[in-house]
C-alpha cells in the first residue's frame, strides 16, 4: 500500500448541549491510501457529515490528530487548511452546491479560478464534455435537472485534477435511476484519474462499489465487507 493521503488518529469531536457534553466521534482512527476508494456508512445522525467535515479540514477536532497529504492539520489555521485544499481536494455534495447565478461552465471554472491554472477555460469545457453536458455549458443551474446539476458538480470536483475527492451523499437528492448513472460516472472518472475517493452515504449500492466500507457507529469506525453490505438501500 502506498503512502496514506489521509491519516486520522484518535479523532474526537464533542459538542456541548446545555450542561451535557456529547461525543459525536470518539477516538476514531482512519488511514486512507492514495488511489483508494472508501465508503463511510451510518445511520442518520451518526455523525457522518461531522466526520467528513473534519477529514476535509473544514472543521477542527476536539482532540486527536489528522494529517492531510502528510501535513498535520492541527498546525494550520483556517487559511492554511484552505490553502492545502486548493486544487488538491474536490467535493461533491448532496445538494449539489452550484452557484445559481453562474452557468454550468462558470461553476466548473470556479475552483480553477482560485488556482494558478486560472484561465484554462478549455479544461472546464473538456470536463463538461466528459460528463455529457458539453452542449449545455451556458445553462444556469435552475435550467438543469437534478441529475444534470450533479454531473456539473462532479465535473467541478475533478477539474483541478485533485488527489482526493470527498463526496457527501452524492445520490441523496436523486431518484434511483439517475442515482445509478451518477454513481457510474463518479467511479469511472475516479478510476480514470486515479483519485482517492472518500464518500459518505447510506446508499448501500453506492458503498459496494468502493474498495473499502466502514460503518460509523457510536463515534467509532467499524470495517464492513463490501460484498456483504446489504442489497439495495
Amino acid at each position: 500500500m502506498s503512502r496514506p493521503v489521509l491519516q486520522a488518529e484518535k479523532l474526537t469531536k464533542t459538542v456541548t448541549s446545555g450542561e451535557r457534553k456529547l461525543a459525536i466521534l470518539n477516538q476514531l482512527s482512519l488511514s486512507v491510501a492514495a488511489g483508494e476508494s472508501v465508503a463511510i456508512l451510518g445511520k442518520s445522525g451518526a455523525g457522518k457529515s461531522t466526520l467528513l467535515g473534519l477529514l476535509a479540514g473544514l472543521d477542527t477536532p476536539s482532540d486527536g490528530e489528522l494529517r492531510l497529504f502528510g501535513q498535520p492539520l492541527s498546525r494550520l489555521d483556517e487559511d492554511g487548511r484552505a490553502a492545502l485544499r486548493a486544487g488538491r481536494v474536490g467535493f461533491v455534495f448532496q445538494n449539489f452546491q452550484l452557484l445559481p447565478t453562474l452557468s454550468a461552465l462558470e461553476n466548473v471554472l470556479l475552483p480553477l479560478e482560485l488556482s494558478p491554472r486560472a484561465g484554462e477555460d478549455h479544461t472546464a469545457q473538456a470536463w463538461l464534455d466528459k460528463v455529457g453536458l458539453g452542449e449545455r455549458v451556458d445553462h444556469l443551474p435552475k435550467q438543469l435537472s437534478g441529475g444534470e446539476q450533479q454531473r456539473v458538480a462532479i465535473a467541478r470536483a475533478f477539474v483541478t485534477d485533485p488527489e482526493l475527492v470527498f463526496a457527501d451523499e452524492p445520490t441523496g437528492n436523486l431518484d434511483p435511476d439517475t442515482g445509478a448513472q451518477i454513481i457510474d460516472l463518479l467511479f469511472t472518472l475516479n478510476r480514470e484519474a486515479g483519485t482517492t475517493l472518500i464518500l459518505v452515504t447510506h446508499d448501500h449500492a453506492l458503498a459496494r462499489r468502493c474498495d473499502r466500507c466502514l460503518r460509523l457507529d457510536q463515534g467509532q469506525l467499524l470495517p464492513l465487507d463490501p460484498n456483504t453490505v446489504g442489497g439495495g438501500q
Binding site: 484552505a82 485544499r85 486548493a86 488538491r88 452557484l99 470556479l110 475552483p111 482560485l114
Partner: peptide, 16 residues
C-alpha cells in the same frame, strides 16, 4: 454566504 463557504471549501483564503 454559501458562495463564500464553497470558495473556502475550494481553498480560498479569507483575504481572497
Amino acid at each position: 454566504l454559501d458562495t463564500a463557504a464553497l470558495l473556502r471549501c475550494f481553498g480560498a483564503s479569507q483575504q481572497q
